[in-house]
């Protein structure tokens, strides 16, 4: 059986301590700039905060993974290199990378550090994963959330590195690292700036009939009737109309959260080494609740017991959950 490590989000030093104390095997975090894919105001770490956080985590035998998982635009590569150098100096346990230039730099400059391939690299086949393993010494791949469990099992047989999969949190629909929707509407790029549907561009408009529009950069992403709860205007979770769909419909996906708590034994059996919980932008109480619940579930499975799955629905977006692609090809 694989170790089934629990990889937990740390958007702030406080969230990091919470995740460590709740039983994370590893936490992942980023600096306060474009070098990571959650470059949101009020999130992330200064080098000083990261240094203290690494000490706290290591004292409890928890690993710290540094996300450098965006794509530097030409002319700005040094920011990513300096972030890697700083992370190495502060003793992080691994780097999570997507860009080949960044991967190449770390492989040459910090050859003793583990490299994890970010979901942002969109490596969804054994050949793509082997490319990164053979060229940059990647030790673990974070798989895109688009594969079924039989597909994951097959990939595991054909690659020389560990597999990490998302098990809980935001259910990204677009292939990560290949999405410019936010840049198209707001001028801030997910790949280059680490920004997705930024809060600074969000507005809610109340209409005379009591309905509410959620807008991003002036575009109506959804409209809610008075009895509906207005959701956050993420472009790929909005309702639109089309020639065959005169009523607004979720053209891409409903606002729904991934929850694979019931599939953990199957995922372990398929050869998944590490389970990732999404949510660096979420609160400490979210981190505490989710990490504790999954800690218990994973410990149950490791001990050969039936996993007790605490009810995690209250913590999910829109109070709805899915097993997404992991469950069935019909999802596609």
């Amino acid at each position: 059986m694989s170790l089934a490590e629990l990889i937990c989000p740390a958007g702030t030093p406080a969230a990091l301590r919470t995740a460590v104390d709740a039983g994370a095997d590893a936490v992942y975090c980023g600096f306060q700039d474009a070098t990571n894919a959650r470059n949101f105001p009020g999130l992330n770490f200064t080098p000083e905060e990261l240094e203290a956080s690494v000490a706290h985590a290591h004292a409890k035998a928890t690993k710290v993974l540094l996300a450098l998982n965006t794509y530097p635009p030409a002319g700005k590569v040094d920011l990513w290199r300096q972030a890697a150098d700083t992370g190495a100096r502060l003793g992080v346990d691994a780097f999570i990378v997507a860009d080949m230039g960044v991967a190449d730099y770390i492989a040459r400059t910090h050859p003793d550090k583990r490299l994890h391939l970010s979901v942002q690299a969109a490596a969804s086949s054994p050949e793509a994963i082997r490319y990164y393993c053979e060229n940059f010494g990647v030790r673990r791949v974070v798989l895109p959330r688009i594969l079924t469990i039989p597909e994951i099992r097959q990939i595991r047989k054909e690659i020389p590195c560990e597999i990490e999969t998302f098990i809980f949190g935001n259910h990204g629909l677009m292939v990560e690292g290949r999405c410019s929707l936010t840049n198209y509407l707001t001028g801030q790029s997910t790949n280059m700036d680490g920004v997705c549907s930024p809060a600074s561009d969000v507005e809610y408009l109340r209409h005379e009939d009591g309905s509410m529009s959620s807008q991003l950069a002036g575009f109506t992403i959804d409209r809610f009737s008075p009895d509906e709860k207005a959701g956050y205007p993420t472009i790929c979770k909005g309702r639109y109309t089309a020639p065959h769909r005169s009523e607004g419909y979720y053209a891409f996906e409903e606002p729904i959260s991934l929850n694979l708590s019931r599939l953990l034994p199957e995922l372990i059996d398929a050869g998944v080494h590490a389970f990732k919980i999404e949510g660096r932008q979420r609160s400490k109480s979210y981190v505490r609740g989710v990490v504790s619940a999954f800690r218990q579930a994973v410990d149950d499975i490791r001990a050969g017991r039936e996993a007790r799955i605490a009810d995690l629905v209250a913590l999910t977006e829109g109070q709805k959950q899915t097993q997404g692609a992991f469950e069935t090809r019909k999802w596609r």
Binding site: S124, P144, I146, L173, M174, V175, R178, C179, S180, L181, Y184, C236, A242, H244, R245, Y249, A251, F252, E253, A325, R329, K330, W331, R332
Partner: peptide
């Protein structure tokens, strides 16, 4: 401009079908 790709087919989805 190509803005995104997905494993899901949104054309099929608009017509109440799946990719398969």
């Amino acid at each position: 401009a190509p803005l995104a790709v997905s494993a899901r087919c949104y054309h099929a989805r608009a017509h109440g079908r799946t990719k398969d």
